[in-house]
Nucleic acid binder design. Structure first.
Lengths: 210, 210
DNA sequence: AGGGTCTACTGCAACTTGCAGTACGGGTGA
DNA sequence: TCACCCGTACTGCAAGTTGCAGTAGACCCT
C-alpha cells in the first residue's frame, strides 16, 4: 500500500516547492515558519520527505558538506501537480489546544494561586511567540525575508498572529482582574458579576477591553 | 508497567469528580464541554476511564438501563488526591492548528478563489462554534448550567472563546479586504501596502479594525 | 415487518510524539 | 593537547491518539 498524503505531507511538499532542502534544514525551517499554523514534531518532519520520495513527489540525493553526508530532497513535477490539487480540497476545521483553559475550567480543584499561575504560564508562552513575530517583522523591513516574492503572504499571516496574541493577552489581563475579585475558586456559582458577564455574552458582546 | 497519566487522563478525572458518568455520557460530555480547551476523540474518551480504573483513580460497575448494560465510572479518594497534585504541575504550552492559515502561507500554489474559499471554510467552522457558545450563555441565564456552583468558571472560560471567535472573524474580514486588492496570489512580494502592514506589525500594532 | 436513529461500546491500522541513541566536526578552556 | 560541550544530521522505538469499521440492543415510525 502506498502511504497516504496527510496535511503535514502537503506542508512539507509546499516547502520543497520553494527550493530543495536537506532533512535537517527542513525540520528547522518547518518548525520556525509553520509552528503557528501547523505545529509538527521534528521527528515527523524527518519522516515526511521520505514518504514524498516513495510517492514520487520528491527525489533525494546525498551531498557532502564538510566531510559529512546529508540527504537533499527536491520536488518533482508530480509533486507540483499534487500541490495544485491540494489547494482545491476541503480545509480541516481549526483545533485549539490550550491546557491553561482546562485548568481554568477545573480551577475549583486547586487554589486561586494555582489558577493565576496557569495564566502566568500561558502569558509567558504567548509572550515569547509574540515578541518573536514582532522581531521577525522588523527583520522583513530590512529585507530579511528568505523568499522576498512571498512577503505579502507572510505578512498577512503575521497579522493573524499579532491579532491572536494581543487578544489572548488582553483576555489574560481581564481574567486576572475577575479572579482578583474572587475569594476562592469554588462554589461561587452565578454571582451578580457572573450574571452581568453571562448577559453580555448571550448578546454576543465581549466584556474584554480592547 | 502502570499506564501514564496524560493531560487527557486528568481532564476525564476532573469530569468524574463532578459526578459518576457512564462511558457514553463521558465521551459526549467531554466533547461538548472540553472541545475548545482540550479537543479529544470519542475513541480516546472511551479508553481513558479504563486507565483510571487500572491506576486506582476510579472504580467501575455495570448498571442496567432499559435492559442494556453500561459501565459507570466513579472517582476514588486516590483519584481526588491525584487531581489536587495535577493543579500544581507545569502547564503545557498552547497549540493552535489552523489549516486555513497553512493554505494562506502557501496560497501562491493556488488561485485567489482557492484562498478565499479556505477563509470561507474557516469562517463557517468558527461561526458554528461562535453561535453555539452564545446560545449556551443564553441557556445559563435561564438556569441551565448542569453544575450551577461552577457557573463562574464556565462563564470566564466562555469570555475567552467569544473574544477568540470575534477576533478571528474580524481578521478574516480584514484578510478578505486585503486579498481583494491583490491581482494574483503570486510574487507580489513587498508591495507598498505590505510594507505599511509590516511597519505596523514591527511596532506591535494590529491593523485589524476592532 | 423493515428501516432509521440513538445508545453503547470494541478492535485495529495508521498517524504522531517524545525520548534515547548514534555519530561526526569545530571551538574553548585548563 | 585533549577533554568536553555544542551544533549538525539523523534513526529506532515505545507509547499516545485518531478515524473508521463493526457489533448490538432498544425504540419509533410507516
Amino acid at each position: 500500500m502506498a502511504p497516504k498524503m496527510t496535511t503535514s505531507s502537503y506542508a512539507v511538499l509546499a516547502l520543497l516547492d520553494l527550493k530543495p532542502w536537506t532533512g535537517y534544514e527542513l525540520t528547522h525551517q518547518a518548525q520556525r515558519s509553520l509552528r503557528y499554523a501547523w505545529p509538527k514534531s521534528e521527528r515527523l518532519l524527518y519522516s515526511e520527505p521520505k514518504k514524498l520520495v516513495d510517492l514520487g513527489f520528491a527525489t533525494t540525493h546525498q551531498e557532502d558538506s564538510g566531510g559529512r553526508t546529508r540527504n537533499v530532497y527536491t520536488i518533482t513535477a508530480a509533486g507540483r501537480d499534487a500541490l495544485g490539487e491540494w489547494t482545491r480540497t476541503r480545509t480541516q476545521p481549526p483545533r485549539l489546544e490550550i491546557e491553561a483553559l482546562l485548568r481554568l475550567l477545573f480551577a475549583d480543584h486547586g487554589s486561586r494561586e494555582d489558577l493565576l499561575g496557569a495564566l502566568d504560564e500561558l502569558e509567558m508562552d504567548i509572550g515569547e511567540h509574540h515578541q518573536a513575530i514582532v522581531e521577525l517583522m522588523a527583520s522583513y523591513l530590512g529585507g530579511g525575508h528568505p523568499f522576498p516574492q512571498r512577503t505579502h503572504l507572510s505578512v498577512l499571516f503575521a497579522t493573524f498572529q499579532i491579532e491572536m496574541f494581543k487578544s489572548i493577552e488582553r483576555w489574560i489581563e481581564f481574567a486576572r482582574e475577575e479572579i482578583d475579585e474572587w475569594s476562592t475558586t469554588q462554589d461561587l456559582g452565578m454571582t451578580p458579576r457572573t450574571e452581568t458577564l453571562t448577559r453580555l455574552l448571550a448578546q454576543d458582546q465581549s466584556p474584554v477591553n480592547p
